[in-house]
């Protein structure tokens, strides 16, 4: 990729500290249990005009990363570049305008007491997007862009269904003309038939407006349909990044493989039960030594318990953080899936 990525994060960490009493802090020998490593060295870049999906289980740090990108949380350490320039820690109005967010739950992300028209007007005026006289026309343009009509201007969020609210939330994010959209599980609260319309909307926006979109999701079937690249997150770190087709065809990290094999399938012939993942993700209070995936990994060797693998290029446009990435294909046939119930702690 020769072009400068629109957004690049390098070695981002975010640590939350629990409120412990002074006495507890003095008596406790290590502070491992009281600090939560939500992000533990994340490297990621978002290219211009692409949809990059970020997938992972709950607690993997997807939402924390989204918050840091949008500026509502500050990283503990690390770099965040926007168009090759470092993003200031405290963003001014213009900087914060560039990256906008769409939230998961359209029922709680819209203010129930403000009409759609005044919500959009507030943003357009505050950021001087258009002259005052054109605010109404611009609001209508935004609503049309997301597939709503002019009469929505006078309405309040409670008058809309979940799918329509999500459209409004997208219109709000687009009002300030961002070039990056961060969407945090925008379709997981919606029914399937509605979900398809919102996914279509994201694809249209990317195509027509040239938006770069970071799409946080846990549904891999959705991701496969929408995104160009996928980044897989596990316990606060990116463990694999590749182009969508490549990632699903040729996963080079055991965790990605487990995720793919866990997807419920739609046709009777395609029931994939080879790979079975034990247990649940460990607590981010206490990240395992070595590779953070080793306690659940059927391929874990002694080396995996001691070395913490970095994200390395395993193929063109394909990075994986697994020391056995190159042998994964051959291992699949020789190692039997483990049964449930004997989680290695």
């Amino acid at each position: 990729m020769t072009e400068t990525p629109v957004l690049r994060v390098a070695d981002i960490t975010k640590t939350y500290h629990l409120n412990t009493s002074v006495l507890a802090r003095i008596t406790r020998k290590d502070d491992k249990q009281s600090s939560l490593h939500a992000l533990d060295g994340v490297d990621l870049q978002l290219n211009k005009g692409e949809i990059l999906a970020l997938v992972g289980e709950s607690g993997s740090g997807k939402s924390t990363l989204a918050k840091i990108l949008v500026g509502s949380a500050t990283p503990t350490s690390g770099e965040l570049d926007y168009h090759g320039e470092p993003m200031p820690l405290h963003r001014n109005k213009d900087a914060s305008r560039r990256i906008q967010m769409v939230f998961q739950d359209p029922y709680s992300s819209l203010n129930p007491r403000i009409s759609i028209g005044s919500m959009l007007k507030e943003l357009l005026v505050l950021h001087n997007i258009v002259p005052k006289s054109e605010v109404r026309a611009e609001s209508i343009r935004l609503l049309n862009l997301v597939g709503l009509e002019e009469d929505a201007l006078q309405a309040y969020p409670s008058q809309f269904s979940g799918g329509q609210r999500q459209r409004i939330a997208i219109a709000r994010a687009l009002a300030v003309r961002p070039d990056i959209l961060i969407a945090d599980e925008p379709v997981s609260a919606l029914d399937v038939s509605v979900q398809a319309t919102i996914l279509e909307l994201f694809a249209t926006l990317q195509r027509d407006l040239g938006l770069s979109i970071l799409f946080v999701a846990h549904n891999l079937a959705v991701v496969q349909h929408l995104s160009q690249r996928v980044a897989v997150m596990y316990l606060g770190r990116i463990v694999e990044v590749a182009e969508t087709e490549e990632l699903f065809r040729n996963p080079r990290h055991p965790y990605t493989r487990a995720l793919i094999d866990s997807i419920p399938r739609m046709s009777a012939e395609s029931v994939n039960e080879e790979f079975f993942l034990d247990g649940e993700p460990p607590s981010p209070f206490n990240i395992p030594a070595g590779c953070r995936f080793n306690p659940r990994c059927p391929y874990a060797s002694d080396a995996c318990r001691t070395t913490d693998p970095a994200l390395e290029t395993v193929a063109p446009q394909h990075e994986s953080a697994c020391i056995r990435a190159s042998e994964l294909d051959t291992l699949a046939l020789t190692i039997k899936p483990r049964r449930t119930g004997n989680t290695a702690a």
Binding site: V192, V194, A196, L199, E200, L220, Q224, H225, T244, R265
Partner: peptide, 20 residues
């Protein structure tokens, strides 16, 4: 049919999703 057409199918990534 509408439900099946609107749900993303992992085995058919190239199929277009048709909303109801």
């Amino acid at each position: 049919k509408g439900l099946l057409d609107s749900a993303p199918d992992f085995d058919q990534p190239d199929r277009d999703l048709v909303p109801i």
